[in-house]
């Protein structure tokens, strides 16, 4: 894991009206690196990856993806706000899995996974279906191709959502509290899929999670956010076993096993 970072946050800030959710932070993600972001709710964790996915616009700072500025572009030597074309170009490097799955309810599982490759990447239907089946196998749902989302359990839906994002072959994959909306007994199957991905993949992953054991197990690095600031970051063992800040200590206490 050497070389240039695939994603760089440089003094990134975000406010919603008067509410300053992120007060400026720096964070680099290396190619292939798995980074978990933890922290109390309301600490702006989700906003971080939503800005990277271009679902929210930062109010300050810069986000660099694979060497290119995400929210700004150069026109005649001047840095101006990115237009939709620029955003689309860079967004192609990034994939995202949502807390509430957001599968397309009017499409079969197969079409959920092939629509974007066909419409966006310009693959033929056949190529797209081959890719989709390959990814659905990875998440263990190749037998559901003809089903509709409403026929699946929450865990299955989330696994389809992961496959759907994988088919686009992003360099960076974002996971936004992907198990928070699931029944407890379905969490395991989704985490297992992500763990497998983390083990095989050279894809970078940024995970927002409340599953501390899981974060510890799969992450190369963990970042702890609180009150809109990046409080602490480092290898998971270090962070979980020797927290430096009081904020992180008290946060981890609430998760400590009884």
């Amino acid at each position: 894991m050497t070389g240039k970072p695939i994603v760089q946050f440089k003094n990134v800030k975000k406010s919603f009206g008067d509410l300053e959710v992120l007060k400026g932070f720096d964070l680099d993600i290396m190619p292939g690196e798995k980074v978990s972001i933890i922290g109390p709710s309301g600490s702006g964790k989700t906003t971080i990856i939503r800005m990277l996915m271009t679902l929210e616009k930062p109010t300050g700072g810069e986000i660099i993806v694979d060497g290119e500025n995400l929210w700004h572009m150069e026109v005649n030597g001047k840095l101006v706000e990115a237009n939709e074309k620029h955003l689309r170009k860079i967004r192609g490097n990034i994939g995202m899995v949502f807390q509430h799955f957001n599968l397309f309810p009017h499409m079969t599982i197969m079409r959920n996974c092939t629509e974007a490759p066909v419409q966006v990447l310009g693959l033929s239907k056949k190529e797209a279906e081959q890719r989709a089946v390959q990814m659905l196998k990875k998440v263990g749902l190749a037998d559901k191709v003809n089903n509709y989302p409403f026929q699946l359990s929450g865990g299955q839906k989330q696994r389809v959502a992961i496959a759907r994002a994988l088919v686009m072959q992003p360099k960076v994959m974002l996971f936004d509290e992907v198990t928070s909306a699931l029944d407890p007994e379905l969490v395991g199957e989704v985490l297992q899929v992500i763990k497998d991905l983390a083990e095989q993949g050279d894809m970078s992953m940024i995970l927002i999670t409340h599953e501390m054991d899981f974060a510890m197990e799969i992450s190369d690095r963990v970042a702890f956010f609180a009150d809109g600031l990046l409080m602490e970051e480092g290898p998971p063992q270090e962070l979980f076993n020797n927290p430096k800040s009081d904020r992180l200590k008290s946060f981890l206490q609430r998760f400590s096993r009884v």
Partner: peptide
Amino acid sequence: DQGQWEASRALNFS
């Protein structure tokens, strides 16, 4: 659902 717009964006649909 708002999530449908977001998923479309994440998959880079025009």
